[in-house]
């Protein structure tokens, strides 16, 4: 029994020493900067981040030349990121005149990309979208294949105004200015609002939409309840329980769950303030 006890103690000491040796080696290597020591950590904002792989789900990019404004992405999106307007071009084809993705809401699930019938919507590997604090704020940093635009706040306002307008309505100078900020492959610059940057009008619009949606939902719920109550009353064998009076404003058919699309934002209200 004593021998077993001694064996236990010796084992414990041995295993502790083994572990301590391992961590001690790490410690020394790391302090000396050898053996891959501290290099494991990437000092992110100073050192560029690694792009993880082709399938990384990052910033969304829409090739507006191919987009047909079918709203499939809009329908697929679980958090309602999209705002788009379309117009017919010279060939009577639908073209996006405005295509915004609110990236502050986006959860990068990729459902919209799958839904897109024309493959115009795609995801890039970019994930660095934080504004900087040195007076400039850049929307996107060039990483692999995304748009490289460095804008100050004034530029952002102008950009927002221009993008919100139908492209045909732009002056030549404005269009040139805009094209400069759209990368060479013709991808539409999107996601400005992804920085949580709302104009007051947009906020009002979003609020109104949310309100309408909630109302529609409530109405639908009330209608369903009334219907159920009516069914119960009809199926009940004895009229012992008086049938509940139907709610005064319950329509016969449930209200459509999705609200009617919000009216197109008037282009001149979006960017009125300098």
């Amino acid at each position: 029994m004593i021998l077993a006890w001694i064996h236990d103690v010796v084992e414990a000491v041995q295993s502790c020493v083994t572990g301590m040796r391992t961590t001690g080696r790490f410690l020394v290597e790391n302090l000396k900067g050898e053996g891959g020591g501290a290099a494991v950590t990437r000092q992110y904002p100073e050192q560029p981040a690694e792009v993880v792989g082709d399938r990384q789900r990052g910033h969304l990019v829409n090739d507006t030349k191919r987009c047909i404004v079918c709203h499939a992405c809009d329908t697929a999106c679980p958090v309602d990121c999209f705002k788009m307007d379309g117009e017919r071009d010279a060939d009577n084809k639908m073209r996006a005149s405005r295509f915004d993705i609110d990236l502050s809401k986006c959860i990068y699930c990729g459902l919209c990309v799958r839904a897109c019938p024309t493959d115009s919507l795609s995801m890039t590997a970019t994930f660095e979208m934080a504004p900087q604090h040195d007076g400039k704020r850049f929307l996107f940093r060039r990483n692999s294949k995304q748009v490289d635009v460095r804008l100050d706040l004034h530029d952002v306002e102008r950009l927002e105004r221009l993008v919100a307008m139908p492209r045909s309505g732009l002056s030549d100078a404005d269009r040139a200015w805009l094209d400069e900020r759209i990368d060479e492959r013709g991808q539409h610059l999107i996601g400005m609002y992804g920085l949580g940057y709302y104009t007051p009008e947009m906020k009002a619009e979003a609020d109104a939409q949310r309100e309408a949606k909630k109302k529609a939902k409530d109405a639908a719920a009330a209608a369903a309840k009334a219907k159920a109550a009516a069914a119960a009353a009809a199926a009940g064998p004895t009229p012992a329980r008086p049938a509940a009076p139907a709610p005064p404003s319950a329509p016969a058919s449930p209200a459509p769950t999705p609200p009617p699309p919000a009216p197109k934002a008037a282009p001149d209200t979006t960017g009125g303030t300098p």
Binding site: F26, L27, V40
Partner: peptide, 13 residues
Amino acid sequence: KIAAAIQRRVGPN
């Protein structure tokens, strides 16, 4: 700092 070195991190820097 020591914890960082042992775990091959950098620690507060």
